[in-house]
């Protein structure tokens, strides 16, 4: 909720109010929100770690993982962080054109990642691992699904941001809005790195 609201609800910057810390309200709020998100993913990851071995006669993680594939999709997501950095730096140079280009590329790479996840889920399902098959599968799909939803929401926001920049509809400081989107996007990437390491790379 807050992530979308945050960028729009800038508190009266044009009136020249300075803040006690010097940080803008929006940025502080985004950091707080991301702090809260850490606990959300913390809870999901803990659940997964508790249940990853609970699949007695059913399929286990090591039987379905396709590490090379997931590595390449993780790499794509990481690259999107790079393009997000380029977008932020273009925005800082007031280069609307390249900001839009890099935001679009970021969104595209993110969409590819989500597509990869959809593919992965489909193939796991075909292999016999449904959402309700075992505790392991329930907690795995929930964890990665939550992450996928975060990425998807991010992509929709990125695409809308491109549209808003084109139509000159951005409310508040454009540079800061792009930067805030960047923060969110990097957070989602970092969480994925954590998930990739804990869920895929460390054997059960």
């Amino acid at each position: 909720m807050a992530d979308t609201a945050v960028h729009s609800d800038a508190h009266i910057e044009h009136a020249g109010h300075h803040t006690s810390t010097g940080l803008s309200n929006n940025k502080l709020a985004m950091w707080m929100f991301l702090g809260s998100e850490c606990l959300l993913f913390g809870g999901l990851i803990s659940t997964y770690m508790l249940y990853r071995g609970r699949h007695s006669a059913n399929l286990g993680p090591d039987q379905v993982w396709d590490i090379p594939f997931t590595s390449s999709s993780s790499f794509v997501l990481l690259m999107s962080s790079l393009t997000m950095v380029l977008a932020v730096s273009s925005a800082n140079r007031d280069d609307d054109r390249n900001t839009k280009v890099w935001l679009s590329v970021t969104a595209l790479l993110g969409a590819l990642f989500v597509a990869g996840q959809v593919y992965e889920f489909t193939s796991f399902y075909r292999e016999g691992l449904g959402f309700t098959t075992s505790l392991f599968s329930s907690s795995f799909y929930t964890l990665t699904g939550f992450h996928g939803v975060h990425v998807s929401v991010g992509i929709i926001m990125l695409m809308s941001l491109v549209g808003m920049i084109s139509k000159n509809k951005v409310v508040g400081d454009k540079k800061e809005v792009v930067e805030l989107f960047g923060l969110y996007w990097h957070f989602v990437d970092v969480v994925w790195i954590l998930i990739f390491t804990l869920v895929y790379l460390i054997p059960a």
Partner: peptide, 24 residues
């Protein structure tokens, strides 16, 4: 814009995701 932008973005996302996952 309040209605078009998110819907367009969501449809765009959906198409890419669907198409690429089919390819794979």
């Amino acid at each position: 814009y309040t209605a078009e932008m998110p819907v367009a973005a969501a449809i765009g996302l959906g198409l890419i995701v669907f198409a690429f996952s089919r390819v794979m």
